[in-house]
Structures are given as structure tokens and as C-alpha cells.
Design a protein around this nucleic acid. Sequence first.
DNA 1: GTCTCCAAAAATATCGATATTAATTGACAC
DNA 2: GTGTCAATTAATATCGATATTTTTGGAGAC
Lengths: 222, 222
Amino acid sequence: MMNAVQHIEGKESSATHGCYLTLRKMILTGALPPGQKLKIEQLRGLLNTGTSPVREALSLLTSDMLVERIDQRGFRAAPVGRANFEEILLLRCALEDTALRASLANADQPWEERLVLAHHHMKTAGKKGTADFEDAHKSFHMALLSNAGLPMLERYCAQLYDLNIRYRYLAADGPRYGERSIEAEHQSILDAALERDAETAVRVLLDHYRRTGEYLSPQIKN
Amino acid sequence: MMNAVQHIEGKESSATHGCYLTLRKMILTGALPPGQKLKIEQLRGLLNTGTSPVREALSLLTSDMLVERIDQRGFRAAPVGRANFEEILLLRCALEDTALRASLANADQPWEERLVLAHHHMKTAGKKGTADFEDAHKSFHMALLSNAGLPMLERYCAQLYDLNIRYRYLAADGPRYGERSIEAEHQSILDAALERDAETAVRVLLDHYRRTGEYLSPQIKN
DNA sequence: GTCTCCAAAAATATCGATATTAATTGACAC
DNA sequence: GTGTCAATTAATATCGATATTTTTGGAGAC
């Protein structure tokens, strides 16, 4: 018998994975706010499944640093704070610097094509803030790093990307980005990557992150 | 009622955490060899507990990259390979560089004292290869980074430390370290750290890792 | 009022059983 | 022999119930 999650998500086979994806999205978007107690029974009802998949999904989210497990007192959504945000930014810069250089060092045509395509998808996807755009945006950034042949590093970067985007959602009610052109920044990153100019690509990419950081940081309370 | 794990491990409260620690050690030391299928029922018997704690522990180990989850086919100990080993080395160098510099930038007396103590414990602990020494060795390396105020980074470094030590155990039947003096290297790292000489400390630390890497890498098949 | 302590309630952690899914085996056709 | 398919076996994933632990709330002492 199919349960609700499988019905909604379609392809997904296991209840655990369905819970994982749903809970993750809820935490990332702020539907489950930082610090909130995550009661098994409540989530079990919400996700229309048993306790085991919920617990297992929460365990997995623990390692994504989106959920904290408290001794024998269950789980809660990971808290946020400026120090945490700054650390995410620092780590992203350090890791993506390494990853992008490695990716560029292995640059080849198939990768270039994947990259161009990912960029195109991002441009044609819905406006900023929509789920479509966010997916495409992540795909573009991951495509940049995807040729490094360093799967663990890519995993860390993806993890940090998600942690960072969480702060974007949390600050969604703050002031808009203003005059800054995200599109132009993406274009510059793409251009430098296609020209295999590592120095420029890294500089532009990290500037992109730091600028977003400077914009978001003051909005984070604590 | 107490179960076997609690009885053995003493303090540990939850069955899940007990399973986690035991399974982790077994994978790190090679008692559960790379690639091995990890059958729930078999582990449940071995750990003298139910299926839920075993599954949850395996989920947690998945995020430590010590266990792989295969679609709907259960779990297996993460495979090993030279490429993986080299990536671990690369990431350790990149991350510990950042962490050590940050730690030194915040250097203060309490930290110095913790560091000196950790080094002393390592020297007085049992000979290399014993569990005591290995614990003290990890503590010393973590103490170096512990003043950075970057908890996520420290977590990554600890994770990578464990992944690396796994290769040491796997290569334990290979040739001995030979003439190289690990103790002298540790002393140099400590000295540079206490003098707050970041450049030297980082150089010596990374040399320490790379030397171990050069020694281990050829022994890894595949 | 406020503190301590004990009982009641709620939540977690764990277990054992069932349903589901994958792997295995062997019969049969070619 | 070799490959395919169905029946069997084995393992996983999930459920519902129980035991354990933590939290809550309130009575009584000071």
C-alpha cells in the first residue's frame, strides 16, 4: 500500500527517504523554525508514516547539521546565529576555492556543456525565490565544482550550500537585494570558468558569496 | 533493565549511541572490512539489541562516510581506494590549514595549557598502535584546532581524521614506519604552536600528514 | 512567595512482529 | 550449456505496542 509521501513525491521508494526530503525542505525554508522541538509523534502524523522512518530521517538530518539530537530528549531543528552563518561562509570559501580550481584543472568539453546548460536552465527558470529557480541555482553552483573528481568535497559543498540557503529563507522578509545584479555575477563566473581562468573564476565566485554574506549577516539576530 | 552494550560501555545511556560507537570502532579498525554487507539481523545479534538502534546507528555512520546505504538493499561498510585516500589527505590539508591558523589567531593561555597537556598524555600513553595511544593522538591533533571557535570545521576535521586512521589500520600489516620519528614531528608541531608561529606550525603539520600519506598510499590496492 | 519533592502526564527509545522488497534457486525451453 | 521465468528464501523497511525517561504540575514545608 502506498502512503501519502510516496503518493505526493511520486518516484520515491522508501518512506525514510520521503521523510528525509520533506523534513529537510521544511527546515531549509523555515517551515520548521530554528530551535523548534521536533516531536516524533507530531511529525509521524504530519508525514503520515510510522515512527521508524521519522527517526531515521532525523538521524540523517543530524549529520547534515540541520537537526540536533539532544541526549535522551529527542530532536530539534538546528539553531541559527551569526557566528554559525559566518562559519558557513568561511568554509564555503575555503572549500569551493579548492573545488573550483580542481574542477577547472580537469576541464573538458562534456563538463563545459553541462555547465553551460545548467546556467541556461537557471536563466530560464522562474524568478528568484521560486522553487524552480532555487533548484537550478544550486545545480549551477554544483556543476561548477562537479568536475573536480572529489566526491567528498562536493558533498561538503552541497551541504554548506543548503545551510547557507536556509539563512536566505530566514531573511526572506528583510530588504530586497537592491541594485545588485545576481545575473551578471553568475555570468562572470560562467565566463571565467569557460575561459579556464582559475584565478578570476575563484575571485568572482568568492566575491559572489561574500557579497551575499555581507548583505545577509546584519539581518541575523544574535 | 540494562543491555549488554550499556553494561560493557558503562556510562553510555542509549542503545543507539552504544551501537554507533561499537560499529564505528569495528569499521575503523577493520573488524568490519570495507565493502562488507552489514546485515541488520546479524548486527542485532552481535550487539545484543533490537533492529531500531542498529538501523539508526547505521544511518548516523552513513553521514560519517563510514557506511553506505544502498537503495533498498540495506547497508555496507564504505569501500576504500587510493582515490578516496588521496581526497581525504587533500581535504585534511585544506581544512586543518584553515583551522590551525584560526586556532593560533585566538591563542590564549588556557588553550596552551590544554595543548601541552594533550601532548603530554600522548607521550605517556601506551606505545603506538594501542587504543590508548590512538585516543591520545587524536586528542592532541584536535586540541591543536580546538581554539578556532569554528565547530563545524572541527567536526569535519575529526571526521576526516577518523577516515584517515581507518587506512592506517587497514595497512597495519604492511611495513613499519621505519626510521621516521613521529615523536619529533609532534614536538615540532607543538613548539611552533606554542610560539604562535602559524607559518611554521601549518607547514610542519601538513608535512606530517603528507609524509604519512606518502608512506600509506602505495600500500592501498586499487 | 518560593523551594522541594512526589505523582501524573507526555515524550522518547526500544522491541518484536508483519509487510515489502530483493536475492536465490531450480525447472524448463531453446 | 545458457538464458529466462517463477517459486522460494532471505533480508530490508515499516508498523504498532511497550518500557523508559523526561517534563509538568501541584501539594506541602518553610
